[in-house]
Simulated scan of single mutants.
Amino acid sequence: MAANPQQPTAGVGAPGSSGHPLRTGWTVLAAVLMIFGGTMAIFEGIAAIAKDDLFVRTSNYTFQFNLTSWGWIHLILGIVIVLAGCALFTGATWARAVGVVLAGLSLIANFLWLPYYPFWAIVLIAVNIFIIWALCAGSLRDASRP
């Protein structure tokens, strides 16, 4: 007997299905934002390593660091964040936990980066806060489903 085309099926990605790892859009959004934020951190790192005289910094900031070392920190952190963002597309639970931790580290790194590039640091701080929210909201939503 053929299935009725009028009735929706509980296939992959359907609201009631539990088999698909990407059943919420928040995980996909967090993954895309992690890839974007990680790529921007890579560019920040390359710019700080290649031309550390490019950035103007305030003289009386509490956290004063060498720009070349900050460039390496941003470069390595950005690469790891991009890889974790790609891992989120698999739907693995460990990728969500790693994503929250890495977004938190990136948030702290961009806070300390404020005197060097304030506008972009604030933008990436907001992106990282949204990543943490999206990963936590997606996992809470998934936990509430039977």
Rank of each mutant, 00 (worst) to 15 (best):
N4G: 01
P5Y: 02
Q6C: 00
Q6T: 02
P8A: 01
P8R: 04
P8T: 01
P8M: 01
V12N: 00
V12I: 09
A14V: 01
A14K: 00
P15I: 02
H20N: 07
L22I: 03
L22C: 06
T24N: 05
T24F: 06
G25A: 10
W26I: 02
T27S: 07
L29F: 13
A30Q: 11
L33I: 02
I35L: 12
I35G: 13
F36Y: 15
G37S: 13
G38L: 07
G38Y: 02
M40N: 07
A41I: 02
A41E: 12
I42W: 03
F43E: 07
F43T: 06
F43H: 12
G45E: 04
G45D: 06
A48S: 11
A48I: 00
A50L: 10
K51M: 12
D52K: 05
D52F: 04
L54E: 02
S59W: 05
S59L: 12
S59T: 12
N60V: 12
N60W: 13
T62G: 14
F63Y: 15
F63W: 13
F65P: 00
F65Q: 11
N66K: 14
N66S: 13
T68R: 15
S69Q: 14
W70H: 13
W72D: 02
I73H: 01
I73M: 12
I73L: 15
I73K: 03
I73A: 15
H74T: 09
L75Y: 12
G78C: 11
I79G: 10
V80Q: 04
I81D: 03
V82M: 07
L83D: 11
G85T: 06
G85A: 10
C86H: 04
C86T: 08
C86K: 02
L88P: 00
T90M: 04
T93L: 04
A95V: 08
R96S: 13
G99I: 10
G99T: 07
V100P: 09
V100E: 05
L102D: 07
L102P: 05
L102E: 09
L102T: 10
A103F: 08
A103Y: 06
G104L: 10
G104F: 08
L105E: 09
S106I: 03
L107F: 15
L107D: 10
L107I: 06
L107E: 12
I108N: 09
I108P: 03
N110F: 10
N110L: 03
N110Q: 13
F111E: 09
L112N: 14
L112R: 10
L114H: 05
P115S: 08
Y116F: 12
Y116T: 01
P118D: 06
F119E: 01
W120H: 12
W120E: 09
W120K: 09
I122D: 03
I122F: 11
A126W: 10
V127P: 01
V127C: 09
N128H: 11
I129V: 15
I129M: 14
I131F: 05
I131D: 11
W133T: 09
W133H: 14
W133F: 15
W133D: 07
L135S: 06
C136F: 02
A137D: 11
G138K: 06
G138A: 10
G138M: 03
S139Q: 13
D142L: 07
D142N: 08
A143N: 03
